[in-house]
Write a protein that binds this DNA or RNA. Structure first.
Lengths: 122, 122
DNA sequence: CTTGCATCTAACGTCAGTGTCAGGTTCTAG
DNA sequence: CTAGAACCTGACACTGACGTTAGATGCAAG
């Protein structure tokens, strides 16, 4: 498939796909005229990358741990594996932060609820 | 206290405090010579603001819901209260995203663990 | 063959929070 | 009184993941 189809199937912009390739996150074959072609499997890969972006990873970090995705059973660099574990832990810490902030907002909501008819149930 | 002390007590940079004031998140009184002075209570306030930043709120959003912090028992604008509830929900959705991404990383870690001596327990 | 939509490269624009620098002023310790 | 640390305003720099534009080219349908 060409880049437009991958974009709509994976739910990202064409611009983003070119950027991901520039960052070494995805690859493509080129047609005679120079247009990018992708296999069906790239859809999943792009969705996975999007999840990592949503989790706050930078493209550089994603690039560093992608070897573990491509060949999970080979001897990837120990660095990539350690990166994987570090990012998992970082996400866990971030979840803690978010929950703390949400609790603070919940207390504020309770303190303000009486003065607004609106329900704000959890 | 002056700006340097507030900065070190709240764990932020002096630059950030000036920026927060510019964005209407904190206020200060000025000495005869023009220097900012703060009360002890500002430390908590800045820490609260930091939590919201960490939760991904923009300074504009924070500014919009601060009325609910200042006078929780008065009739704040309904907009501020709705903002509060929306942001709480947004944080909850973000937590879901993070957990999804973390699960994906956990699966990757499991698939790679056999080839690395290192423990990566949850 | 032509029309026209999709794609190409290259480059600049954006946003938000903060770092940093310059050049000047205020405050405090000795 | 004076040195020097802390503070002031104003402005430019930076980062990162894109949006957007321009001008040229590829490609499928009629």
């Amino acid at each position: 498939m060409r880049i437009g189809e991958l974009a709509s199937r994976a739910g990202v912009s064409v611009r983003s796909l070119r950027y991901y390739e520039e960052q070494g996150l995805i690859t493509s074959t080129r047609s005679a005229g120079g247009q990018r072609h992708y296999t069906d499997g790239e859809v999943e890969r792009v969705e996975f990358i999007q999840r990592l972006y949503a989790a706050g990873l930078s493209s550089r970090t994603i690039a560093e741990l992608l070897p573990c995705v491509e060949s999970p059973s080979e001897q990837n660099s120990t660095e990539a594996f350690e990166r994987l574990v570090r990012e998992r832990d970082r996400i866990s810490r971030h979840v803690e932060e978010l929950v703390t902030a949400r609790d603070a907002l919940d207390r504020l909501i309770d303190a303000n609820r009486a003065h607004h008819g609106r329900l704000a149930a959890r």
